[in-house]
Amino acid sequence: MSVFWEALKEAVLLLVHGDRYVYEVMWMSIKVAGSATLIGMVVGVPLGTWLALRRFWGWAAAATVLNVGLTLPPVVVGLFVFLLLSRQGPLGGLDLLYTPGAMIIAQFFIAAPVIAAITMGGVASVPKDVRLQAMGLGASRWQSLWLVLREARVTLISGVVAGFGAAISEVGAVMMVGGNLSVAGHNLTGTMTTATMALVRQGEYAIAMAFGLILLILAFVITYLLTRTQQGLRRRWLQP
């Protein structure tokens, strides 16, 4: 028990005093997971919308693949991206392995399916009448599509947040393709999750706990903002 409290106390001190390495690693995490989520959004939202509104040959297979993507184990993603980017791999020439670029690619494959799947659910649950009525009132295809997305925006935001959450909390993929590298106490490719793993391995529980605290605080902040947004949106939507 005393180990726990000691680590917690030291972790709070580290955060208050602003340890340089801790902040470098924190920013790397947010940068990588944020970029992956952004790209995941650009790909995932249209993909999910398309799957929600169109039925075509092979639709069931596509939806299944997407749902598998939802539960994709990060280590499997890491292994795939690692083998693709490794020296002997097909994309080895890009020299991307152990760079933030490689980490963004890996986390993209974790965030994008989450965003696409939740988008699909949200868009599919918007009543068909909304589109038909809009079209009937003379809206173009793009205008009616925009209307549907507006209708589903609470779910879309949840999807993006869930994607970010999946990306920032995973450790398997980013460890394999990022390598958790640092130079003389300066972070190169470490994230909060990989650094935590490495630090626990060394018995450095205090700094590991500091990262644990940041991840928890981040989770609270995100969830709080999400709940606020949902409530706010609903209120505005219900009182036009």
């Binding site: 490794s86 020296r87 392995l97 152990y98 460890m175 390598g179 958790n180 590298l181 640092s182 130079v183 003389a184 190169l188 470490g190 990989t194 650094a195 490495a198 630090l199 391995r201 060394q202």
Partner: peptide
Amino acid sequence: YRSTGQGMGETLTIAAQ
């Protein structure tokens, strides 16, 4: 001079790559 913070197997992989 770069740190991996990881085990021997992983560090060898990184050195090879």
